[in-house]
């Protein structure tokens, strides 16, 4: 089922439209990111599962930022799911990638994944592989919202208490493109110290996700302590949408927190 993607990538590479294609490959039984540069060497390409767009996912557009920085004049192709496309769009507004130098090749996620992700849009605008799964809203957010305020605190504290401060959530996050991270700023966080200061550590990160998080859920997946970070950031995105009618990756333009807003426009 990777045929369509392979065909498309081969075309792009042969025509010289792209210098390389950032996708996934399977080597020694493992799936991982790979930059395909040779049109005749696409054998190992996979879509996150052996046969179809599966659940092995990587922050490909985060890797693309680094590749693009090293080769600023080249154009690259990149494999995108719905969330990756939202990520690209958001990274364009944050000036981290140049839309003229990126050619996305889309795949749609299977329904199981859309369900597990509670994904609002489990497919990119255009895709060459997979089928359009149904959108899902977030039951996990609704569940927490339904709790009494004290129980909400207790339940989050229970989750956060497992944090081993590995910074995995940040490191995998395609929207975390800063060189200097507030989670390592001595003034804000007790650095180099365990256990982490909860809930501050996680709330600082949540604030930084406002107007940025595109709900890919990689943080949740990578967290060794299984903290439901995605639920927290889903809520962050909901708030920004409710208050300012903006949802990163879905809406156009910059985050409302990064423009002066109404009064200045008058």
């Amino acid at each position: 089922m990777t045929q369509n993607v392979k065909k498309k990538v081969k075309e792009l590479l042969e025509s010289g439209k792209i210098k390389g294609f950032l996708g996934l490959c399977q080597k020694n039984g493992h799936i991982g990111p790979h930059l395909f540069c040779d049109p005749d060497d696409l054998e190992s390409m996979v879509l996150g599962d052996e046969e179809r767009p599966g659940d092995s996912r990587y922050p490909l557009n985060k890797l693309l930022i680094h590749i693009a920085r090293s080769y600023p004049d080249e154009t690259f192709g990149v494999l995108v799911r719905g969330c990756d496309e939202r990520g690209l769009k958001t990274l364009y507004t944050w000036n981290q990638l140049n839309p003229d130098k990126v050619i996305p090749v889309g795949v749609a996620c299977p329904q199981e994944l859309a369900d597990a992700c509670e994904c609002l849009r489990p497919y990119p605008e255009e895709f060459v592989e997979g089928e359009r799964a149904e959108e899902r809203s977030s039951a996990s957010v609704t569940k927490i919202s339904g709790l009494d305020v004290k129980d909400r605190f207790t339940s989050w504290m229970k989750e956060f208490a497992r944090c081993i401060k590995c910074y995995g959530c940040r490191d995998i996050c395609p929207m975390c493109f800063c060189n200097e991270c507030s989670l390592e700023a001595e003034e804000l966080i007790h650095t180099g110290e365990l256990p982490p200061e909860i809930p501050i550590f996680h709330l600082v990160r949540a604030v930084h996700m406002a107007g940025r998080c595109i709900d890919c859920g990689l943080c949740n997946e990578v967290c060794p302590a299984d903290i439901p970070l995605r639920t927290l950031y889903k809520k962050v995105a909901d708030i920004i949408d409710e208050e300012f009618n903006y949802r990163p990756g879905y809406s156009e333009g910059k985050s409302p927190l990064n423009i002066l807003g109404s009064a200045a426009e008058e």
Partner: peptide, 17 residues
């Protein structure tokens, strides 16, 4: 703006009155 750490995200650009 610290030139070493700025990532050129333009986050500040439109905030300056």
């Amino acid at each position: 703006i610290d030139p070493e750490t700025c990532v050129g995200c333009l986050g500040c650009l439109d905030m300056c009155p």
